[in-house]
Write a protein that binds this DNA or RNA. Structure first.
Length: 319
DNA sequence: CGTTGCGCCTGTTAGC
DNA sequence: TGCTAACAGGCGCAAC
């Protein structure tokens, strides 16, 4: 399940492998992933065909690709979504939902590269190929961007005029790793909420990018029970919690951002972080790494919460 | 406006 | 063996 760190890895891969490329064809293989686009599958395809991708941006778990006409291709990976860069002709993935054919003319891309050199790094497979092709001016390269999604909680749509920030996601708050995230504002708003702090952490209008896993991990580190009402927490407690959320997501980002150098950009949510570093999430019955008490699982909004019954004392009922 | 509960999806696994 | 139920959970929305 991709959370913020995984989505950032995908954004970064898209930036590297699709910016500057033109969409020459769009094939919608299943209508559900484009359900948010009012024009339907055909209108979705038409609005994108011929457009050039000019950037790759993210807010919380939403991604968007600004286009050369001011619109944007907006996407969310949901639970199981993947955005893959593929060689044309590669066999269709089992849950392939949308296929974008991309093309790039060699000298156009070389121009861009010289204008914007980017950081030092070893040349990728893609770049090596581009270098070879550049000896034949006018060579057109092709590749595919594929949206693969087993469970189809995710989706894609075209946002009219959404290159800057799509209006569809204007209500999504900044994430805590965003330099413009406003800690004071967050604390003020949380302290007006009577809901449990875990639900507050999952409210994307207050703070984005935090999912069930990182919420449980941040709360464990802060020794707070998820049912503690927001308005019963102090400013310092909330600032500490925010710090833990940053730490836990920053660590995952550092570990997950290993290599998207290959042509095949794949994020399946298993960044490797989960196997090694989880203290609470999914650890039912395992000893709490701090005090040894078995971690317990509780039902929470049709899913699960994991916490230490000793370190994270549940709140008293409001009197 | 804040709060709360739930439906959307499909593949895997546990249990009878 | 074959069936059903539980589970994974981000997000938006309806109802209060």
């Amino acid at each position: 399940m991709p959370e913020l760190p995984e989505v950032e890895v995908v954004r970064s891969g898209l930036e590297r492998h699709t910016v500057g490329w033109r969409i020459t064809e769009v094939e919608v293989l299943h209508p559900r992933p484009v359900r948010r686009d009012e024009r339907g599958p055909a209108g979705f395809a038409e609005a994108l065909t011929g457009r050039r991708i000019v950037a790759a941006r993210r807010r919380g778990k939403y991604l968007w690709l600004p286009l050369d006409n001011g619109d944007a291709l907006l996407g969310h990976l949901g639970m199981s979504g993947q955005l893959l860069i593929q060689t044309p002709g590669a066999p269709d993935e089992r849950h392939l939902r949308v296929r974008f054919a991309l093309s790039s003319v060699v000298e156009e891309r070389a121009q861009r590269a010289s204008r914007n050199p980017g950081p030092e790094r070893p040349p990728s497979v893609v770049e090596e190929r581009a270098k070879r092709a550049s000896r034949n001016p006018g060579t057109k390269e092709t590749r595919e961007l594929r949206f693969v999604d087993q469970r189809m909680f995710g989706g894609l749509s075209v946002s009219a005029g959404g290159a800057g920030l799509p209006s569809e996601i204007a209500h999504i708050a900044r994430d805590p790793l965003d330099p413009d995230f406003d800690d004071d504002e967050f604390v003020r708003r949380v302290r007006r909420r009577t809901s449990g702090i875990k639900r507050v952490l999952l409210d994307q209008t207050l703070i984005s990018g935090v999912g069930n896993i990182y919420a449980d991990e941040a709360l464990w580190r802060a020794r707070l029970h998820g049912e503690r009402p927001g308005d019963r927490l102090t400013g310092p407690q909330l600032r500490e919690l925010l710090g833990h959320a940053r730490e836990v997501m920053g660590d995952a980002l550092a570990q997950g951002g290993t290599s998207f150098d290959a042509l095949y950009v794949n994020v399946n949510g298993e960044s490797g972080y989960f196997d090694r570093s989880l203290n609470a999430y999914g650890q039912e019955g395992m000893p709490c790494p701090r005090c040894g008490t078995p971690i317990r699982r509780q039902a929470f909004m049709n899913r699960s919460s994991y916490s230490c019954p000793v370190c994270q004392r549940p709140p008293r009922v409001r009197g």
